[in-house]
Write a protein that binds this DNA or RNA. Structure first.
Lengths: 402, 402
DNA sequence: CGAATTTAGTTTGCCGGATGAATTTATCCC
DNA sequence: GGGATAAATTCATCCGGCAAACTAAATTCG
C-alpha cells in the first residue's frame, strides 16, 4: 500500500490537542495582558466558558506558570476577582550574545524580570571562535547552575550572533565582522556540561533584537527593524512575529544595493558599504578605531565632515528602507543600535526618502522611531525566544519536563 | 465591568470548530493531491481515524465538493479503494482582469478546469475607468448568469488590476499605467446586478498572477515572482501562500531603487525606470508604441542596441531581486510577463547578479526560472483566490449558501 | 443590621465529535 | 470455493468544552 507521507497533521483538530491549545491560549492571555486579568475576564476575552478557563488556570497554577495575586479592592459589588499574573522566578529563558565588542548572558522569567545578567566588553574581531564561545559558556554555565539549584526551570537558551546562521541545520555560515566562517557553534558550546542540557538556538543578532523590540512595544506591531552595529542587520516583524524566512536568513538589509554603479562591484553600493560604521567614520574623517561617541561629539560640535557623513548614511538608509517597505508593505521603521543613537540626526532624511519612494506613502504614511528595547536587545530577545517555546505549547513543554 | 474587547478568539479550540476544521483539512487534502486518494489514504496522511474521514468525505460528497471515481483496478488483494477527486463543474471561482492592453474573465472549478473564458485585446491606457469596468462587467455578467443557470455555484469573483489596491478598505489607489487614481472599483462593478451578488475582491495583478504560478508548481513552493507587464510588479510567495502585507501592497518590486544617484530624483533609479518596457524600448531605439515582439525580433537578429537594452534591464533586475532575496530569504525567482518571454536573454545576467549579491548564495544557490502558469495568469489566480474561500472553510461556506 | 444584588468562581450533567475495535464489503490468490 | 487482504462502515467509549445551577464574597439598599 503506497501510504502517502504524512503531510502537515498539525492542522487537524482532535480533542486531545484542544485542551493543549487552549492551555496555551489562556497562558498567553495572562502573559500578554497589560494588567492582571481574572478568570472571568479571560473567559470573556477569549470567548471560552468560565468553567473551561477555571480548569485551565488551575492547571497553569499547579505547573507554576501562573500565580494568583491578592484580590484587588475594587469599589464594585460582587465577589472580588482574583487577578492572575505570570509566575515569577519559576521558569527562565536564557539569551546569550557574542558581538564585535562584547559578549554576555541574560536570563528572564515569564514576568519579564531579569533573573541574571553578565556582560563583558571586549574587542572580539578576529578572535578565534572556539575561544570566544568557551568564554561565553564560562559566563553562562554559572547562571544555569545557579538557576537550577534555586528550582528555576530553564526553558532553553538562545545565542545571538552578528552573522548568517542556518536555523534549519545549525552552523554559523559567516559572521563577517567577527571574521568567523562555518563554525559549529552549537557543537562548541554544547561541550560544556551545563549547556549541553540546553543547546542554544542560534540566531541572527538583528532578528533577536527585533523580537525584544516587538515585545517592548506590545500589541503585535509590524515594522522593519534596523540594527546598526558594526555591520547593518535587520529584521521584519509582522503582527509581533519575527518573519524568519526559510533558513532564518531574512532581513539582511545591509546587503541591499542602492547604488549599483558606484564601484567595480555592485556590492560597493550596498547599504552597509555606504552607511556602515566604518563608512561613516571614514567619511567623517575619523580613524577606523574611533567609537561612535567620537562621531556623536563631532556632530554636536557641528563638524561639517561628520554632518556630511551622517547625512549620506541617512540617505542610503532611507532609500534602502523604502525598498523594504515597497516589498513587504510595512508601515513602521524602527532604528536600533548605532542608528538608534543617531536617531535625531537621521530621522528627517530617512522619513523624507520613505515619503518620496514608498508607493503607498500618500495613503498610509510611514513612521520612523528609535528602538526602545534597552541595552543589548538581542540578549533579551534570545531569552524571550527561549520562553516562547513554553508559551507556544505549555502542555507539551510540561510533559517534556519529565 | 470593564470587559476587555475580544482578542483573537480564532485560536481557541472548541469542538464545534473541530469538525469544520477537519472538513477543510480533508477537502484540501483531496484537492491538493497529485493523484486521487482514497478515504484510507487520506486518513493515513492526515493522521485522522478512518471513521472520521469517512464521515467528513460523505459530507463533502453530499455537498458536491468531492466526487467518487470508479474503483481503480489495482492488482492488489483486498477491497479496492474508491478514489476521491474534486468535483467538476459544481463550484466556480471567477477571475477578472483589466490590464493595459486587454481585459477578460476566466472561470475555474475545483478540479481546475476552465468553465468559461472571454478576453478582449485593446489598448486601455488613459481610457475612463468607469467605461472600462462597465465593459468588463458586460463580459462577466453572462458568464455568471450562464453558470448559475447550469446549477454551478459561484464561490466569488476577484479582479486583478495593475496598481495599488487597498485590500482592507477596497478602492484602487493608483494604477499608473492605466492612468487611474482613487477609483471605487467595487462600487462601479457592483452596479451590475449579476456582479452585485458577488462583489469582486480586488487585488494587484502581480499578486494574483503569483498565486496562479504557485498553484501551477504545486507543493507549496517559495519564490519571488516578477510580473513584467508595462510596469513591473511582483509578489512574494512563501510555502505556496501569497505574502499579502498589511494592506495587500507587498511585492512592489518595480519601485526598488538600485541607482539612487542616477537622476535628480532617487526614483529615476528605480527598477521600473531602468527595466520597464518603456525603458527597454527606448534604449533599444524602438518607438514607444512598439510591442514586445519587435524587441524580440531585434534580439534574434542580434541588433546591438536591443541587446544592450536587455542586458541593462537584466542587470537592474538581478540587482533588485538580490535585495528581495536578502530581505525575505527566498531561494527561487520566477520571471513572468515580459521577463518570462525574455527569459533566455536575461537568465544568465540575473542569475549572476544573484550569485554575486545574495549573501546566502554560497550555501543555498538561487534558481531563476520562467513562469509556467500560462497566459493571463492573473485571471487564473483570481479564480483560484475565489475558490480558496471555499477550501479555507468549506463548512462555513456551505452554511452561507443559504 | 440584615436582606437583596452583583460578580467570581466551582460543580454537574450534557453533548458533539474523534477514536479504535469489531464488522461488513469487495477484491485477489490459491 | 475458501482464505487472505484491504477498504469502508458501525458502534460503544471517552474527552473536553459548555450552559446552568450553585456557592462564595463583596457592595448596596431598606
Amino acid at each position: 500500500m503506497p501510504t502517502p507521507e504524512p503531510r502537515d497533521p498539525s492542522r487537524v483538530a482532535r480533542q486531545a490537542q484542544m485542551r493543549d491549545q487552549n492551555l496555551g491560549v489562556v497562558l498567553r492571555g495572562i502573559v500578554d495582558a497589560d494588567e492582571p486579568l481574572s478568570r472571568a475576564q479571560l473567559a470573556a476575552s477569549e470567548d471560552l466558558a468560565r468553567a473551561t478557563v477555571s480548569g485551565l488556570v488551575d492547571h497553569l497554577i499547579e505547573a507554576r506558570l501562573v500565580r494568583e495575586l491578592d484580590p484587588a479592592q475594587t469599589q464594585r459589588a460582587g465577589r472580588p476577582a482574583v487577578p492572575l499574573a505570570p509566575a515569577r522566578g519559576t521558569v527562565a529563558g536564557i539569551g546569550m550574545e557574542v558581538n564585535v565588542d562584547y559578549l554576555g548572558v541574560r536570563a528572564l522569567d515569564l514576568a519579564g524580570d531579569v533573573l541574571a545578567e553578565h556582560v563583558e566588553l571586549d574587542d572580539l574581531r578576529g578572535v578565534d571562535a572556539a575561544q570566544v564561545l568557551d568564554r561565553l559558556a564560562a559566563l553562562a554555565e554559572p547562571v544555569i547552575e545557579d538557576l537550577s539549584s534555586r528550582g528555576v526551570r530553564v526553558a532553553g537558551t538562545a545565542l545571538a550572533l552578528p552573522g548568517l546562521v542556518d536555523r534549519v541545520t545549525g552552523p554559523l555560515r559567516i559572521a563577517p565582522n567577527l571574521g568567523w566562517r562555518d563554525v559549529d557553534v552549537v557543537g562548541v558550546v554544547s561541550a560544556h556540561p551545563a549547556l549541553a542540557a540546553f543547546p542554544p538556538r542560534v540566531a541572527n543578532e538583528a532578528n533577536l533584537a527585533a523580537r525584544a523590540e516587538a515585545h517592548a512595544r506590545r500589541g503585535s506591531p509590524s515594522f522593519a527593524y534596523v540594527s546598526g552595529e558594526v555591520g547593518i542587520g535587520g529584521a521584519i516583524v509582522l503582527d509581533g512575529e519575527i518573519f524568519p524566512g526559510r533558513h532564518g536568513w531574512s532581513g539582511e538589509i545591509g546587503h541591499i544595493v542602492i547604488d549599483a554603479f558606484r564601484g567595480p562591484r555592485a556590492s560597493d553600493g550596498s547599504l552597509e558599504a555606504l552607511a556602515g560604521q566604518d563608512a561613516m567614520l571614514r567619511t567623517a574623517g575619523l580613524p577606523p578605531t574611533a567609537r561612535l561617541d567620537a562621531l556623536l561629539d563631532a556632530l554636536t560640535v557641528g563638524e561639517p565632515r561628520a554632518t556630511a557623513a551622517v547625512a549620506q548614511a541617512a540617505r542610503a538608509l532611507g532609500v534602502a528602507l523604502a525598498s523594504v517597505a515597497n516589498v513587504v508593505d510595512v508601515g513602521e521603521v524602527v532604528l536600533g543600535g548605532t542608528f538608534g543613537q543617531l536617531f535625531d540626526h537621521v530621522h528627517d532624511e530617512v522619513s523624507a526618502r520613505l515619503d518620496e519612494l514608498v508607493i503607498f506613502a500618500p495613503w498610509s504614511p510611514l513612521t520612523v522611531s528609535p528602538a526602545r528595547a534597552g541595552q543589548y536587545p538581542a540578549m533579551t530577545g534570545g531569552a524571550l525566544a527561549s520562553l516562547a517555546r513554553v508559551l507556544a505549547d505549555p502542555a507539551e513543554w510540561l510533559r517534556a519536563q519529565t
